[in-house]
């Protein structure tokens, strides 16, 4: 009812103004109707729809607002941006900043990262114990990994898979390389086998690179070491958008990125 009255009064107002201005107003209104959802999507704003303005619909509110987005888009106070740091001068505190106080708390957190990448439904840090098959004889994860406690697992070559990465656990992270992601930009090395075979191949590549085997290398980079080894036969194929474009060529090399003894990632490469 209210919206009907509002619409009538809007029409009466339009009648009172010159035709050319009425046309301009109508064009602007149509432009707003078309662009409002896209602007909200692109910039993370929350512009009300025309329907909500005339009272037919409530403005859309995000059920689970991302605090940082809110900080960026809804702050009315000034923002200092210097280099890679944007400093807020508002009194309003970020919920995220308040909630997270220590590094330890972050690492043991159960909630996933807020991002644009495909989400993993499994809770953080739970992957290995929940989903990985254990060898009943000696309780080894995926048949080869020794449980070190605190969700850390050691391979026969001494590589450690522990909590970390976007997925919450390194085993969950490297699992991404058991499947192709054809729409992902660039290359995406895919291992041809199951998790146990992948872990065995990673260990073998690590051992070959340490021994300086033919076709292997070991490069240090800012606290990490990148190991690479070439296998006699293909171990996987090139996926991702690059792989798709090149008809998924077979790959014989494995690259393993390690910090200390901790595996950061591993995947087949060209």
């Amino acid at each position: 009812m209210v919206s009907r009255k509002r619409t009538d009064s809007a029409i009466n107002t339009l009648r009172m103004i010159p035709t050319k201005w009425a046309i301009v107003l109508v064009v602007l209104l149509i432009g707003y109707v078309l662009l409002q959802p896209r602007i909200n999507q692109w910039l993370g704003w929350n512009l009300p729809s025309v329907a909500s303005l005339v009272g037919d619909e409530k403005p859309t509110t995000k059920k689970e607002p991302k605090p940082t987005k809110e900080v960026v888009s809804k702050e009315k106070t000034s923002e200092k941006v210097s280099g890679n740091v944007a400093e807020k001068t508002s009194e309003k505190k970020s919920e995220v900043a308040q909630a997270t106080t220590t590094k330890t708390a972050n690492r043991t957190s159960d909630s996933g990262p807020k991002d644009s990448a495909p989400k993993n439904s499994a809770p953080k840090n739970s992957a290995p114990k929940d989903s990985a098959p254990k060898d009943s004889a000696d309780d080894r994860i995926h048949g080869i990994l020794k449980d070190l406690g605190r969700n850390r697992f050691e391979s026969p070559e001494g590589l450690v898979y522990g909590p970390g990465s976007e997925e919450g656990h390194r085993l969950k992270h490297i699992e991404r390389h058991l499947e192709d992601q054809p729409s992902r930009p660039g290359p995406h090395g895919v291992f041809d086998g199951d998790m146990k075979e992948f872990l065995v191949a990673i260990d073998r590549a690590f051992a070959m690179a340490n021994k300086g085997a033919k076709g292997s290398s070991k490069k240090e980079d800012e606290g990490a070491v990148v190991y690479e080894a070439t296998f006699e036969k293909p171990i996987g194929f090139l996926g991702g958008s690059d792989g798709k474009r090149r008809k998924n060529p077979a790959l014989k090399k494995m690259r393993v990125v390690v910090r200390g003894k901790s595996v950061i990632t591993a995947f087949p490469v060209q």
Binding site: W42, T68, S94, K103, N106, R107, S111, P113, D115, A117
Partner: peptide
């Protein structure tokens, strides 16, 4: 800046709006 893990809850991949802000 704060020394906390970039996989912590206070961190996320940037939105287009945040990329613009930077």
């Amino acid at each position: 800046t704060c020394n906390q893990s970039l996989w912590g809850e206070q961190s996320h991949w940037a939105s287009i709006g945040e990329v613009c802000l930077l």
